[in-house]
Design a protein around this nucleic acid. Structure first.
Length: 136
DNA sequence: GCCAACGTTGGC
DNA sequence: GCCAACGTTGGC
């Protein structure tokens, strides 16, 4: 099966890219949205995941990969919610800002722009490649 | 089942 | 700090 591409959002105050750099891997818990959950469940080991910091940074700051497919999210108060394990791959030399993404016509359809509140979203291969290229 | 009220996210 | 978007809740 071919590699899939995703983007996850996090408020740095809750969990920052720097935290993932330090820990090297983390359980991506706390997702409480049905659409985002569908995306988590569709992730496979080795899929590439862009890490977007919202609110303060507003930029894609690094690249991670799926290390473990969906498993029960122990931080949820009720059953049914899932987490995945992410592993840190590398930081981007140049953070790809929201403004840059908005200014790139090829990225006009990314869910980050279309659905501002979705926290886990798929990316087309071409969209992923463009963002990685911008990140350096 | 509809819809108003409310809470959260996240950009500006 | 404000506000738009939007998901959830609860009354009817």
């Amino acid at each position: 099966m071919t590699t899939q591409y995703w983007l996850v959002k996090s408020e740095p105050a809750a969990y920052a890219w720097a935290d993932l750099l330090r820990e090297r891997h983390t359980a991506w818990t706390g997702v409480r949205n049905y659409q985002a959950r569908l995306h988590l469940k569709a992730m496979r080991r080795g899929d590439r995941v862009l890490f977007y910091e919202s609110v303060t940074t507003k930029a894609v700051v690094g690249l991670a990969a799926v290390a473990r497919t969906a498993f029960p999210d122990v931080t949820a108060g009720e059953p049914g919610w899932v987490a995945v394990e992410l592993t840190c791959l590398r930081a981007f030399p140049h953070a790809v800002t929201l403004a840059q993404i908005k200014a790139t016509p090829a990225l006009a359809d990314v869910a980050l722009l279309r659905q501002s509140r979705l926290s886990v979203m798929p990316l087309r291969a071409a969209e992923y490649a463009r963002i990685v290229k911008l990140g350096g």
